[in-house]
Design a binder for these strands. Sequence first.
DNA 1: ATGACAACCTGTGGGC
DNA 2: TGCCCACAGGTTGTCA
Length: 270
Amino acid sequence: MPELPEVETTRRGIAPHIVGQKIIDVTVRDRRLRWPIPSAFEQDIVGGTVATTRRRAKYLLIDLDRGTLLVHLGMSGSLRITSAAEAARKHDHVDITLENGVILRYHDPRRFGSMHWLTEASHILLDQLGPEPLSDEFSGHYLFRQSRRRTGAVKLFIMDAKVVVGVGNIYANEALFMAGIRPDRPANKISKARYQKLAHVIKEVLSTAIEVGGTTLRDFVGGDGKAGYFAQSLQVYGRGGELCRCCQSKRLAEIRQANRTTVFCLKCQR
DNA sequence: ATGACAACCTGTGGGC
DNA sequence: TGCCCACAGGTTGTCA
């Protein structure tokens, strides 16, 4: 489900319900996530109080007074606010019960997500990440410099978390369409001016998606249970074979890149 | 360093 | 209706 806007939407949805609250109980029903949840996990976090929530890339960080809970939603994960009145369903792997009666419930059918308990400021999963796309550090100048030795396709380049974090398949497709750049063009063959356009639209598409609550695909809902509205703004993702909304004359091409679907317009993207 | 590819899982939708 | 296959929002690890 989640790309950066969905993770941010989740963070904003759950924060008001958990910040300032003490964790009084933790139930782990299935420890087999991307990395198994250690047996000490429950005792590590029970008794802790939630201080703040943060996001880095697609990781959600829940800071307690004694350390940080690091959550990744993988491909199919979600976190939502519920209560004991609502019985756990299939794939509800973790419940974190707070003093106010709220349960933060982690649901993940494919189990590509993860949960870690951090007591150090740095972590191997966070240390290698590139800049946040919405930060000032991320710019056309930065992209241009990083791309000079990259002969691979530009779409793969902007989806590389070492280059920039949080640009997943949906928004990579959308941003390249908005920038008029062919996704299969070699990264090192793109001008600085075009990278400036690309950096700009990446910021634009991600911040717009955050504003409207992310993209709802299948059953994605934010932490507050509300659906996102970005899906209706998608220009190319999921529209292979359909008419391009820009030129109205060409049907959108669909190819595979690194085993992911790429959709683009042969006329509008060069 | 870069890049190609398999791997981790379950659910769903299309085609027959 | 049922079966089989392809594909799905992500990331890591391995190998060339």
